[in-house]
Simulated assay, not measured.
Amino acid sequence: MAITLQELQMYKNFDELASDVLDLAKEILPDQLIYLTSFSDTQQIILKLSNYDTEILLTEGMMINLSDTVCDRIDFENKQPLVYEDIREQTCPSDLRNTLESVNAKSYLGIPISFIDGERFGTLCAVHHEQSRFDEKSITMLQRIVRMFSYYLVLERVAYRDSLTELYNRHYLSRFFEEHSESGGAVFFLDLDGFKKVNDIYGHDAGDLVLKEVASKLEKFADEYDDAFAVRLGGDEFIVHFPHILSKEEMSERAQHVLGILSTWDANYQLSTSVGIASYPSGSTNDLNTVLKNADEALYRAKKAGKNTYKFF
């Protein structure tokens, strides 16, 4: 599950630590432009530059199609850096040479940054508008800096992710409301109908697999809508949050869509989903507990109406 820029912005002291990482890297390679990136499923984001270099055509916040980047060619599996001291040499493939030349870089060093489970975070890179020399000692030191940065990322991620499903948790939802709820939005409160029987009949291992499948389906569902995200509150209770004001027709359409997504299961599992929907206005401080209470009340009415349906608060 790729990390988002919104999630990174909630990490404690992320900006300060990113600056420290670049400063340390700059001590090792003082002549290079150093930059830190992160990956989404489809794009690379330039998070931070060590300095502004008029010779190199990169800027903070730049987003590039991941398949068009040099960093996507790094060997993340074996945690090996990608090094081109002079892109004009035959060892540099022509398509990568064109990519680097498009930003006026003649040399490139890319260090992979991954989470402990191997999922890619992004890269720490060094580029120059002239050919460069990257000695083994310098590369090793940069790899050590990246390793320490990775430990920080893991600690922060644990604070905001559910350990079973890797969806966001309630802590993330609370932080989001603290910082962004003034724009208004809508909450879908979802509960699985019949989940207790799965645990009772097939065991908790089967139940955990169901929860992971729900999480995967909800994440794909949320990805269909700008800035939406899915949360596991606990047990078989989930939230999908939409950070924009929606019409009742739009919410109905999305509710019907998610009910359809969660209606297909193993033939042995008699499962469906009930959904409670609550919206909250823009331009005011919104209390998460109140919004969830409203959505929970709507969910209760959906259960009372026969389950496998949705109700509005």
Results as ranks from 00 to 15, higher is better:
Lys12Cys: 09
Ser50Phe: 10
Ala305Cys: 03
Met141Ile: 05
Lys304Gln: 14
Ile56His: 12
Lys303Leu: 09
Leu167Thr: 07
Pro112Met: 03
Val214Cys: 01
Met141Leu: 11
Leu57Gly: 03
Glu77Gly: 10
Asp296Ala: 07
Ile28Phe: 09
Pro81Glu: 12
Arg301Leu: 15
Lys197Trp: 03
Thr140Gly: 00
Lys48Val: 09
Ile87Asp: 13
Ser282Val: 08
Lys197Ser: 12
Leu209Thr: 07
Asn268Trp: 03
Ser102Val: 07
Leu24Ile: 06
Asp72Tyr: 15
Thr273Tyr: 09
Ala302Asp: 11
Val258Ser: 02
Gly122Cys: 01
Leu233Phe: 06
Tyr11Gly: 02
Met62Gln: 15
Asp75Ala: 04
Glu237Gln: 03
Gln80Arg: 15
Leu190Asp: 06
Thr59His: 14
Gly184Gln: 04
Ser102Met: 02
Lys197Thr: 11
Ala25Met: 06
Glu55Ile: 08
Arg147Asn: 03
Asp223Ile: 03
Ser19His: 08
Ser19Tyr: 06
Val70His: 08
Lys196Asp: 10
Tyr269Lys: 04
Leu82Gln: 11
Gly185Thr: 02
Arg147Glu: 13
Ile116Trp: 07
Ser94Lys: 11
Glu179Arg: 07
Glu101Asn: 14
Leu153Ala: 01
Glu297Ser: 10
Met1Lys: 13
Asp20Leu: 10
Gln9Asn: 14
Asp236Ile: 04
Lys217Val: 00
Asn289Leu: 12
